[in-house]
Design a protein around this nucleic acid. Structure first.
Length: 418
RNA sequence: GGCCCUAUCGUCUAGUGGCUUAGGACGCAUGGUUCUCAUCCAUGUAACAGGGGUUCGACUCCCCUUGGGGCCGCCA
């Protein structure tokens, strides 16, 4: 065995954990576990404007809820940390200075409006935009002068004009022409790295062996390889996963429905359903087995069985799977996980006073009728609907009348016919 | 538009040159079980994008077309 297998998930805390990110995390986790490797969580918060600690908390909480556990991360530390990019600035600065010193990177003083105009022009004549290299030949003196004058700048990579070829574990050989990429940006300044640069440094320092990520990163790969080569870093293995698509066949986004894992949780989807479902979005064991728990996924997972084409997110299939897992639960367990919904709906409240007289056995008070019921009664109610529940949140509308003082219904419903 | 990826039932997919009258699941339809609904069971519905090659033989290999997607940021 060569080096240890190390994978990572690197979400940016600019939103709640997205189902696409969760699925990528799952595949990274499965691949690492399958190969006795390590799985790392790294928070990519270089964009201070948009990053928020509340999102980092949501990401961590959601990942844990799904049962995806990391060996190293911002919350638990590790030997190759820190695991939050905002705490790794000195590393980036070090390599940035190295590239600058070796003239593999340079300061660019072009204004944003100017570049924007170029971009629009390039698109209009049917070309993909890349920086024209205007500042590439500035002398050290000129740069020093412009900086001292307070002219704003960014740091660009001096990209060699060559073909970049790499092997994708899922797609095979892929080639890009770096001449078409141009001198791309590395950092806003020594202390503000940009994505493509920070990723390369982090993956190297964290000894990531396999970069498993969404297909939307395919075009970033040659840039990252170029930086690796300039710095003399080894190249990790790459595997680009097919994207999860919305009903309109485009990358799943908020516009098309629910994307946050925490929202699925809130709606009453079980983590085992979500994990089983996400695993089968782009992967299958090659057999007819469809029900998989996390341990069995770890056992059977392999990148060779990953699909190449995007997969449309089918909520009906998730619901059916969720119904299946709900039916598998014991009534006791199901009642327990339905509590929060019943309480939030204002149907019941835990009745502590009464509990004392019943030797600690849990009792509940139906808020509207003031009636006190035992846990076993609640279990009977839940059991009544276990078979038809597609998600936990439905328990409230289904059991609604058990908890109402007066029933309200349309008198017409009592008529025969129609 | 340029670059890159991709293409089996409506959807997720099996299929790695002959075993295939293309299999499974979801959905949908019908029937059975059931006091209703649901569950469960049975049956049915429905696909290899098109065109060229290669081969004795292509869903499977190659090319083209077409379709779909991603990227083209001083976001990640």
């Amino acid at each position: 065995m060569l080096n240890k297998i190390r994978t990572r998930i690197a979400p940016s805390p600019t939103g709640f954990l997205h189902i696409g990110t969760a699925r990528t995390a799952l595949f990274n986790y499965l691949f690492a576990k399958k190969n006795q490797g390590s799985f790392v969580l790294r928070i990519e918060d270089t964009d201070l404007e948009r990053s928020d600690i509340k999102f980092e908390e949501d990401i961590i909480e959601s990942l844990k809820w799904l049962g995806i556990e990391w060996n190293e991360g911002p919350d638990i530390g590790g030997d190759l940390g820190p695991y939050r990019q905002s705490e790794r600035l000195k590393s980036y600065a070090k390599y940035l200075e190295k590239l600058l010193k070796e003239d593999k990177a340079y300061y660019c003083f072009c204004g944003e409006e100017e570049l924007e105009a170029q971009r629009e022009y390039a698109m209009s004549i049917g070309q993909s935009w890349h920086y024209n290299g205007k500042c590439a030949q500035l002398s050290k003196e000129e740069v020093k002068k412009l900086i001292s004058e307070g002219k704003s700048s960014i740091i660009r990579f001096r990209a060699p004009a060559k073909k970049v070829e790499f092997n994708d574990l899922i797609r095979g050989k892929i080639e890009f022409d770096a001449a078409l990429i141009g001198d791309f940006s590395l950092a806003k300044n020594l202390n503000t790295p940009l994505y493509n640069f920070a990723v390369v440094i982090d993956d190297f320092e964290m000894e990531i062996s396999h970069v498993i990520r969404g297909e939307d990163h395919l075009s970033n790969t040659p840039k990252q390889i170029l930086i690796q080569e300039a710095l003399g870093f080894p190249r990790p293995e790459y595997a680009h996963l097919p994207l999860i698509l919305g009903p309109d066949r485009t990358k799943m986004s908020k516009r098309q429905g629910t994307v946050a894992i925490s929202e699925y949780k809130k709606a009453g989807y079980l983590s085992e359903s979500l994990v089983n479902f996400m695993a089968f979005l782009g992967w299958n064991p090659g057999t007819e087995r469809e029900i998989y728990s996390m341990p069995s996924l770890i056992k059977d997972f392999s990148l060779e069985n990953v699909q190449k084409g995007g997969a449309i997110f089918n909520i009906k299939k998730l619901e059916s799977l969720n119904g299946f897992y709900i039916r598998q639960k014991s009534v006791e367990k199901l009642t327990e996980i339905c509590f929060p919904y019943l309480i939030t709906a204002g149907f019941i409240k835990s009745h502590e006073e009464v509990e004392k007289f019943h030797l600690g056995k849990p009792h509940f008070e139906i808020i509207q009728t003031k009636e006190v019921i035992e846990l076993s009664v609640l279990e009977k109610i839940v059991a009544l609907y276990q078979e038809r529940l597609k998600k936990l949140s439905e328990i409230t509308e289904l059991t609604d009348f058990f908890f109402k003082d007066k029933l309200e219904y349309d008198i017409n419903l009592l008529k025969w016919g129609q």
